[in-house]
Amino acid sequence: MAKKDVRKIGKKMDKSKARKWVKDYQKKNPNGTHGWLYGSDILEALQNYDGCEGIWFFKGINDDGEERLVLFPADADGNILDKKMKSLGAAANLKNPGDDDPADDGDTCPPWCPNGV
């Protein structure tokens, strides 16, 4: 299989199709978490990891049993740039050694949901 350009994974989609997908999911999962919001500061911090070409979004369960997203920066091969989590991907040289923690703590919908979806 040919190597993928990690930077180019994902694409824009039609707004009406996007809204339909979200509404269909919400109808099938009325009591579930419908979305997560992350600020530009944490996304930029992840993107600033030396060698970051993309960001992985993994579902997890926190200590209170709540479904959460955990974000990890990824290298050009899709490996996680996190020295502490070698089981999930390759280690990498970071600009700020010791500053290699993944991200969490996005706001969820519900309770805070945007208009227009």
Rank of each mutant, 00 (worst) to 15 (best):
V70Q: 09
P110H: 04
K23D: 15
G51F: 00
Y38C: 12
D75C: 00
K84Q: 13
G106D: 01
A2G: 15
A90H: 14
K27D: 07
G78W: 06
L81W: 01
K8W: 07
K11P: 09
D41W: 13
K28C: 08
F58I: 02
G60V: 02
S16K: 13
D107E: 13
D63K: 09
K12S: 15
M13Q: 13
L43V: 04
D82Y: 11
K17F: 05
C113H: 08
A74V: 09
R68S: 13
G51M: 00
G54S: 01
K95R: 05
G60R: 02
D107M: 14
Y49G: 05
A92M: 11
D100P: 10
N79M: 06
P102L: 03
K4A: 13
K8R: 11
S87H: 15
D75M: 00
K86P: 08
A103G: 07
A91W: 01
A91F: 01
E44M: 11
E53Y: 07
G51W: 01
R19D: 07
R7S: 14
E44R: 10
F57H: 12
D75L: 01
S87L: 15
K11L: 13
D101N: 08
A45C: 03
E67N: 03
R19G: 04
E44P: 04
V117H: 13
A2L: 15
T33W: 03
G98C: 03
N93E: 14
L46M: 09
W21R: 14
L71M: 00
L88K: 12
C109K: 06
V6W: 00
G10L: 00
K11D: 12
A18E: 05
W21Q: 12
A103F: 07
A74S: 08
E67F: 02
M13T: 14
L71Y: 01
T108F: 08
Q26F: 10
D100C: 12
P102C: 02
D104F: 14
A92F: 09
M85W: 14
P110Y: 07
P30L: 07
E44Y: 09
M1Q: 09
R68D: 10
